[in-house]
Computed example of a mutant assay.
Amino acid sequence: MQLYNTLSAKEREALIEEAGKERLTISFYQYAHIKNPELFRNHLFITWNELDVLGRIYIAFEGINAQLSVPAENFEAFKTHLDSISFLENVRLNVAIEQDNKSFLKLKVKVRDKIVADGLDDNLFDVTKKGIHVDAEKFNELIEDPDTVLVDMRNHYESEIGHFKNAITPDVDTFRDSLDIIENDLKDHKEDKKLVMYCTGGIRCEKASAYYKHKGFKQVYQLEGGIIEYTRQVQDKKLENKFMGKNFVFDHRRGERITDDVIANCHQCGKSCDNHVNCANEACHLLFIQCEACATTMNQCCSTECKDIHELPFEEQKALRKGKTVSNKIFKKGRSEVLKYKK
């Protein structure tokens, strides 16, 4: 029985182009007690592979975290399958603001220790005692309150291209790094301030809100559905949009345009720009912000060293990479010293 991808990303891309059919990019998460993550993983892979679902899905004993692309014509069948699973029935689906048929090119369903790498010992606090979920309208009211502290629970490369006005944006590489920093910075305001948090789709705030309540914060709120759902509600209800710039997303799009504000700059020349790319040198693959002019000059690379390697014949590049692995911490490498105008 097939439990793995048989097509490469390039082959899948060609098939998507040939089909010419609309696909929907969707994300969702749910904390639940999954007794056998491996068995559940296999069930999802078999069913979703038949529906031509592509994406990145993490399964753990604590639940599921999914970012995926599904053919629009198969959406109802996909939703019916979700509803057939008790803890996923009527789960909130965050549908991307900007659609791209090639947002994902493979189906990857992986078993992990956790659905978000938070580094926390969940046995030390009750993860079900979460903060108060608020919609876009209530969120807008809260963040205008002088007794509110608004915190971005995402990483530096995410908030760099877009964030809410007046939000605290911790300069961190990982979600876990931000937890202690925020607690320490706000330690004198655990009772008198409203702690309001947001992230991309809500999953990080779900855990963080329970953690901060455990740490003694009395008034904890989280934006339900994150930036994705906020944007949808703002558009539907004609509310004031208090977000600026792009929302970073973890697929081939790398970002959704929320407003016309460009609040970041090219890491190579300093020009106003918020376009994330990966270095074309396969031995680097560094995530950074690059404008069109620098992309042309640098042949889509982050440095002259990478440019020289990228311009070598493929077999020579392959020989140089032999025995070496590309770090999977490509986001942290965005702080590379080769980037003159990095944040």
Rank of each mutant, 00 (worst) to 15 (best):
M1G: 12
M1D: 09
L3S: 10
E13D: 13
L15D: 03
K21M: 08
T25E: 09
Y29T: 02
N36D: 14
P37G: 10
P37W: 02
F40V: 11
H43F: 14
F45M: 05
F45C: 09
D52N: 13
G55A: 11
I57V: 15
Y58F: 14
F61E: 15
N65T: 04
N65D: 09
Q67K: 09
S69A: 08
A72C: 08
E73A: 09
E73S: 12
N74M: 06
F78M: 04
L82C: 05
V91T: 15
L93M: 08
N94K: 13
D100V: 04
F104L: 07
A117Q: 12
G119W: 08
N123V: 07
F125C: 00
K130N: 11
I132K: 11
N140G: 02
V149M: 08
L150E: 02
V151C: 11
D152G: 03
M153Q: 06
E160G: 00
I161L: 02
D177R: 10
I182M: 04
E183R: 12
N184L: 11
K194A: 11
K194I: 07
L195A: 02
G201F: 12
E206A: 04
K207L: 09
A208M: 06
A208D: 00
Y212D: 00
K213F: 02
Y221E: 00
Y221D: 00
L223V: 04
T231D: 00
K237F: 13
K237E: 15
K238G: 12
G245D: 05
F250M: 05
H252N: 15
G255T: 02
G255L: 06
R257M: 11
D260H: 12
D261I: 02
N265A: 14
C266Q: 04
K271N: 14
S272C: 12
C273Q: 15
H276M: 02
V277S: 01
N278F: 09
A280K: 13
A283G: 15
A293R: 09
T296Y: 04
T296W: 01
C301Y: 05
S303Y: 08
S303W: 09
E305G: 12
F314K: 11
E316G: 00
A319E: 11
L320F: 07
G323M: 10
K324I: 03
N328W: 12
F331A: 15
K332S: 13
K333E: 14
K343R: 15
K343C: 14
